[in-house]
């Protein structure tokens, strides 16, 4: 049954990847990347149980953290053009598209 779940996760990742390649806007692609990340967390957890090493769960936990921070960082980068100035709203170069 774990194998079936792995297959389903892999197919879902494939579908998300298709949307990432097709995706008309940039945000569709980030959405697909976010979904791929969540599915990666799941697949690491399931693989840990298939190989009988629940210690894989630590990796899954860290991946969940990194995935969230990664998506926020990418969004911030595209929103403000750098990862640096986003907090300060009075910087002059923030308004440039």
């Amino acid at each position: 049954m774990l194998i079936a779940a792995t297959t389903a996760i892999l197919i879902t990742m494939l579908l998300a990847l298709t949307r990432g390649i097709l995706g008309p806007t940039l945000y569709d692609r980030i959405l697909a990347a976010n979904m791929l990340g969540t599915k990666t967390v799941l697949i690491i957890a399931v693989l840990g149980f298939i190989t009988g090493r629940p210690a894989f769960l630590d990796v899954a936990l860290v991946y969940a953290l990194i995935n969230f921070i990664g998506v926020i960082a990418v969004l911030k980068y595209f929103e403000y053009g750098s990862l640096h100035h986003a907090e300060k709203h009075d910087t002059p170069d923030e308004e440039q598209p």
């Binding site: 389903a8 879902t12 579908l15 959405l31 599915k39 799941l42």
Partner: peptide, 12 residues
Amino acid sequence: SFFLLVGGIGIL
């Protein structure tokens, strides 16, 4: 697995 696949189909 079913709901994951549904989400994948939905995003397409």
